[in-house]
Protein backbone atom coordinates (compact mmCIF):
# COMPACT_ATOMS: atom_id res chain seq x y z
CA UNK A 1 0.00 0.00 0.00
CA UNK A 2 1.23 3.43 -0.87
CA UNK A 3 0.68 4.77 2.62
CA UNK A 4 3.30 2.53 4.18
CA UNK A 5 5.62 3.38 1.32
CA UNK A 6 5.27 7.08 1.75
CA UNK A 7 5.60 6.75 5.47
CA UNK A 8 8.76 4.79 5.05
CA UNK A 9 10.15 7.21 2.48
CA UNK A 10 9.61 10.33 4.50
CA UNK A 11 11.02 8.65 7.58
CA UNK A 12 14.04 7.53 5.64
CA UNK A 13 14.79 10.99 4.27
CA UNK A 14 14.29 12.38 7.74
CA UNK A 15 16.81 10.00 9.20
CA UNK A 16 19.32 10.78 6.50
CA UNK A 17 19.11 14.43 7.45
CA UNK A 18 20.44 13.80 10.95
CA UNK A 19 23.73 12.24 9.87
CA UNK A 20 27.04 13.93 10.21
CA UNK A 21 29.04 14.69 7.05
CA UNK A 22 30.79 17.71 5.60
CA UNK A 23 27.57 18.74 3.91
CA UNK A 24 25.42 18.14 6.97
CA UNK A 25 27.69 20.32 9.04
CA UNK A 26 27.16 23.36 6.80
CA UNK A 27 24.84 25.98 8.22
CA UNK A 28 21.25 25.38 7.09
CA UNK A 29 21.02 28.96 5.89
CA UNK A 30 23.84 28.54 3.42
CA UNK A 31 22.29 25.37 2.03
CA UNK A 32 18.87 26.99 1.66
CA UNK A 33 20.37 29.98 -0.14
CA UNK A 34 22.55 27.94 -2.47
CA UNK A 35 19.72 25.55 -3.30
CA UNK A 36 17.43 28.43 -4.25
CA UNK A 37 20.15 30.04 -6.38
CA UNK A 38 20.82 26.73 -8.05
CA UNK A 39 17.16 26.15 -8.88
CA UNK A 40 16.82 29.68 -10.23
CA UNK A 41 19.88 29.17 -12.42
CA UNK A 42 18.56 25.89 -13.78
CA UNK A 43 15.17 27.27 -14.74
CA UNK A 44 16.71 30.37 -16.28
CA UNK A 45 17.99 28.32 -19.23
CA UNK A 46 15.86 28.81 -22.35
CA UNK A 47 13.42 26.16 -23.32
CA UNK A 48 15.43 24.47 -26.06
CA UNK A 49 18.60 24.21 -24.00
CA UNK A 50 19.66 20.68 -23.33
CA UNK A 51 23.36 20.26 -23.63
CA UNK A 52 24.30 23.47 -21.89
CA UNK A 53 22.48 22.19 -18.78
CA UNK A 54 24.86 19.25 -18.43
CA UNK A 55 27.53 20.91 -16.26
CA UNK A 56 24.80 21.64 -13.71
CA UNK A 57 24.65 17.94 -12.90
CA UNK A 58 27.84 18.65 -10.99
CA UNK A 59 25.92 20.09 -8.04
CA UNK A 60 23.63 17.16 -7.18
CA UNK A 61 26.30 14.61 -7.90
CA UNK A 62 28.94 16.37 -5.86
CA UNK A 63 26.57 17.03 -2.99
CA UNK A 64 25.18 13.53 -2.87
CA UNK A 65 28.67 12.05 -2.99
CA UNK A 66 30.00 14.31 -0.26
CA UNK A 67 26.99 13.67 1.95
CA UNK A 68 26.84 9.91 1.34
CA UNK A 69 23.27 10.25 0.15
CA UNK A 70 22.24 7.06 -1.64
CA UNK A 71 22.14 7.93 -5.31
CA UNK A 72 19.41 5.43 -5.96
CA UNK A 73 17.10 7.15 -3.54
CA UNK A 74 17.31 10.41 -5.42
CA UNK A 75 17.00 8.72 -8.79
CA UNK A 76 13.97 6.74 -7.70
CA UNK A 77 12.21 9.73 -6.24
CA UNK A 78 12.85 11.80 -9.35
CA UNK A 79 11.40 9.00 -11.46
CA UNK A 80 8.17 8.58 -9.50
CA UNK A 81 7.44 12.09 -8.54
CA UNK A 82 6.80 13.80 -11.82
CA UNK A 83 3.17 13.59 -12.92
CA UNK A 84 2.77 17.25 -13.73
CA UNK A 85 5.97 17.90 -15.64
CA UNK A 86 5.48 14.83 -17.79
CA UNK A 87 1.78 15.46 -18.21
CA UNK A 88 2.33 18.96 -19.50
CA UNK A 89 5.67 18.47 -21.19
CA UNK A 90 4.55 15.44 -23.19
CA UNK A 91 2.38 17.71 -25.32
CA UNK A 92 5.35 19.66 -26.59
CA UNK A 93 6.31 17.14 -29.29
CA UNK A 94 2.76 17.20 -30.60
CA UNK A 95 2.31 20.91 -30.76
CA UNK A 96 5.85 21.97 -31.50
CA UNK A 97 6.44 20.01 -34.67
CA UNK A 98 9.09 22.15 -36.29
CA UNK A 99 12.21 20.11 -36.99
CA UNK A 100 15.78 20.86 -36.18
CA UNK A 101 18.76 19.52 -38.06
CA UNK A 102 20.96 17.66 -35.68
CA UNK A 103 23.77 16.55 -37.88
CA UNK A 104 24.00 15.81 -41.60
CA UNK A 105 20.32 15.48 -42.24
CA UNK A 106 19.37 13.73 -38.99
CA UNK A 107 16.37 15.66 -37.86
CA UNK A 108 14.53 15.94 -34.64
CA UNK A 109 11.38 17.79 -33.79
CA UNK A 110 11.83 20.88 -31.65
CA UNK A 111 9.12 19.66 -29.29
CA UNK A 112 11.20 16.65 -28.30
CA UNK A 113 14.09 18.93 -27.51
CA UNK A 114 12.01 21.16 -25.27
CA UNK A 115 10.49 18.11 -23.57
CA UNK A 116 13.98 16.77 -22.96
CA UNK A 117 14.97 20.14 -21.58
CA UNK A 118 11.99 20.10 -19.22
CA UNK A 119 12.83 16.62 -18.00
CA UNK A 120 16.45 17.52 -17.35
CA UNK A 121 15.49 20.66 -15.49
CA UNK A 122 13.01 18.60 -13.57
CA UNK A 123 15.68 16.10 -12.57
CA UNK A 124 18.07 18.84 -11.52
CA UNK A 125 15.64 20.90 -9.49
CA UNK A 126 14.03 17.94 -7.78
CA UNK A 127 17.39 16.43 -6.87
CA UNK A 128 18.44 19.76 -5.41
CA UNK A 129 15.32 19.93 -3.24
CA UNK A 130 15.72 16.34 -2.09
CA UNK A 131 19.37 16.85 -1.33
CA UNK A 132 18.54 19.88 0.75
CA UNK A 133 16.26 17.86 3.01
CA UNK A 134 18.53 14.82 2.98
CA UNK A 135 21.43 16.90 4.27
CA UNK A 136 19.65 19.39 6.52
CA UNK A 137 17.36 18.54 9.39
CA UNK A 138 13.92 20.03 9.07
CA UNK A 139 14.27 22.01 12.31
CA UNK A 140 17.51 23.34 10.85
CA UNK A 141 15.69 24.51 7.74
CA UNK A 142 13.02 26.18 9.86
CA UNK A 143 15.60 28.03 11.92
CA UNK A 144 17.27 29.09 8.70
CA UNK A 145 14.00 30.38 7.28
CA UNK A 146 13.36 32.33 10.42
CA UNK A 147 16.80 33.86 10.34
CA UNK A 148 16.25 34.73 6.69
CA UNK A 149 13.20 36.76 7.64
CA UNK A 150 10.20 34.42 7.63
CA UNK A 151 7.92 35.34 10.59
CA UNK A 152 8.43 33.33 13.78
CA UNK A 153 4.76 32.45 14.05
CA UNK A 154 4.93 30.67 10.73
CA UNK A 155 8.11 28.76 11.49
CA UNK A 156 6.90 27.81 14.97
CA UNK A 157 3.79 26.14 13.71
CA UNK A 158 5.80 24.61 10.88
CA UNK A 159 7.96 22.98 13.52
CA UNK A 160 4.88 21.66 15.28
CA UNK A 161 3.68 20.29 11.98
CA UNK A 162 6.95 18.47 11.46
CA UNK A 163 7.00 17.16 15.01
CA UNK A 164 3.55 15.62 14.71
CA UNK A 165 3.67 14.38 11.13
CA UNK A 166 5.16 11.12 12.25
CA UNK A 167 2.85 10.73 15.21
CA UNK A 168 -0.27 11.39 13.15
CA UNK A 169 0.82 9.34 10.18
CA UNK A 170 1.28 6.43 12.51
CA UNK A 171 -2.14 7.03 13.98
CA UNK A 172 -3.70 7.25 10.53
CA UNK A 173 -1.89 4.12 9.47
CA UNK A 174 -3.18 2.23 12.49
CA UNK A 175 -6.70 3.29 11.64
CA UNK A 176 -6.36 2.26 8.01
CA UNK A 177 -4.89 -1.07 9.02
CA UNK A 178 -7.64 -1.69 11.51
CA UNK A 179 -10.15 -1.06 8.76
CA UNK A 180 -8.27 -3.33 6.36
CA UNK A 181 -8.35 -6.12 8.90
CA UNK A 182 -12.06 -5.83 9.48
CA UNK A 183 -12.84 -5.74 5.78
CA UNK A 184 -10.62 -8.77 5.15
CA UNK A 185 -8.24 -7.00 2.86
CA UNK A 186 -10.72 -5.20 0.62
CA UNK A 187 -8.40 -2.59 -0.75
CA UNK A 188 -10.73 0.21 -1.60
CA UNK A 189 -11.88 2.67 0.96
CA UNK A 190 -15.27 4.04 -0.04
CA UNK A 191 -15.99 7.68 0.39
CA UNK A 192 -18.31 7.27 3.40
CA UNK A 193 -15.80 5.15 5.25
CA UNK A 194 -13.10 7.60 4.32
CA UNK A 195 -15.09 10.52 5.70
CA UNK A 196 -15.61 8.74 8.98
CA UNK A 197 -11.96 7.78 9.16
CA UNK A 198 -10.83 11.34 8.55
CA UNK A 199 -13.44 12.72 10.92
CA UNK A 200 -12.22 10.45 13.66
CA UNK A 201 -8.62 11.31 12.95
CA UNK A 202 -9.57 14.96 13.11
CA UNK A 203 -11.23 14.60 16.50
CA UNK A 204 -8.21 12.79 17.87
CA UNK A 205 -5.98 15.46 16.43
CA UNK A 206 -7.84 18.30 18.08
CA UNK A 207 -7.80 16.45 21.38
CA UNK A 208 -4.12 15.95 20.98
CA UNK A 209 -3.61 19.62 20.26
CA UNK A 210 -5.42 20.33 23.50
CA UNK A 211 -3.13 18.00 25.44
CA UNK A 212 -0.06 19.52 23.84
CA UNK A 213 -1.26 22.95 24.79
CA UNK A 214 -1.72 21.76 28.37
CA UNK A 215 1.78 20.37 28.39
CA UNK A 216 3.07 23.70 27.16
CA UNK A 217 1.17 25.55 29.86
CA UNK A 218 2.53 23.26 32.52
CA UNK A 219 5.97 24.27 31.47
CA UNK A 220 5.40 27.95 31.82
CA UNK A 221 4.26 28.79 28.29
CA UNK A 222 2.58 32.14 28.00
CA UNK A 223 2.30 32.93 24.36
CA UNK A 224 5.86 33.10 23.12
CA UNK A 225 8.13 30.27 22.13
CA UNK A 226 11.69 31.17 22.92
CA UNK A 227 14.53 29.79 20.92
CA UNK A 228 17.98 29.11 22.22
CA UNK A 229 19.65 27.91 19.05
CA UNK A 230 22.11 30.36 17.69
CA UNK A 231 23.81 29.57 14.47
CA UNK A 232 26.75 31.41 13.11
CA UNK A 233 28.02 31.27 9.59
CA UNK A 234 31.44 29.71 9.69
CA UNK A 235 34.20 30.16 7.10
CA UNK A 236 33.14 26.87 5.50
CA UNK A 237 29.69 28.31 4.90
CA UNK A 238 31.01 31.50 3.41
CA UNK A 239 33.28 29.45 1.17
CA UNK A 240 30.39 27.19 0.15
CA UNK A 241 28.16 30.09 -0.75
CA UNK A 242 30.76 32.09 -2.64
CA UNK A 243 32.09 29.09 -4.51
CA UNK A 244 28.59 28.06 -5.53
CA UNK A 245 27.72 31.54 -6.69
CA UNK A 246 30.89 31.84 -8.73
CA UNK A 247 30.45 28.44 -10.35
CA UNK A 248 26.79 29.06 -11.11
CA UNK A 249 27.47 32.44 -12.68
CA UNK A 250 30.37 31.10 -14.73
CA UNK A 251 28.34 28.14 -15.96
CA UNK A 252 25.41 30.36 -16.82
CA UNK A 253 27.59 32.83 -18.71
CA UNK A 254 29.76 30.40 -20.62
CA UNK A 255 28.39 27.40 -22.35
CA UNK A 256 30.95 24.96 -21.06
CA UNK A 257 29.48 22.01 -22.93
CA UNK A 258 29.71 23.84 -26.18
CA UNK A 259 33.30 24.93 -25.57
CA UNK A 260 34.42 21.40 -24.74
CA UNK A 261 32.44 19.98 -27.63
CA UNK A 262 33.98 22.35 -30.13
CA UNK A 263 37.40 21.74 -28.74
CA UNK A 264 37.10 17.96 -28.96
CA UNK A 265 35.47 18.13 -32.35
CA UNK A 266 38.35 20.28 -33.50
CA UNK A 267 40.80 17.61 -32.41
CA UNK A 268 38.84 14.70 -33.85
CA UNK A 269 37.75 16.13 -37.15
Amino acid sequence: MTFDNEFFNIGYLDRLSYRDTVVHRLDPRSKVIVTMLYVLTVVSYPKYDVTSLMPLFLYPILLSALSDTPFLLIAKKVLIVSPFAVFIGIFNPFFDTGTIDLWRGIQISAGWISLLSIMIKFTLTISAALLLIATTSFPGICHALQELGIPALFTSQLLFLYRYIFVLMEEAMRMVRARDLRTFGARNIGITVFVRLIGLLFIRTVERAERIYQAMLFRGFHGKIFSIKQHSLRPADTAFISLSVIVLVVLRLFNLTDLIGRFVQGILL
Binding site: P139, C142, F160, R163, A215, I228, K229
Partner: peptide, 11 residues
Amino acid sequence: DDQLFMPTVFE
Protein backbone atom coordinates in the same frame (compact mmCIF):
# COMPACT_ATOMS: atom_id res chain seq x y z
CA ASP B 1 4.43 12.30 22.51
CA ASP B 2 2.06 14.96 23.72
CA GLN B 3 4.58 16.63 25.92
CA LEU B 4 7.67 16.38 23.78
CA PHE B 5 6.47 18.96 21.34
CA MET B 6 9.69 20.68 20.38
CA PRO B 7 11.70 19.52 17.37
CA THR B 8 14.74 18.27 19.29
CA VAL B 9 15.31 16.81 22.73
CA PHE B 10 17.50 19.69 23.76
CA GLU B 11 15.03 22.34 22.72
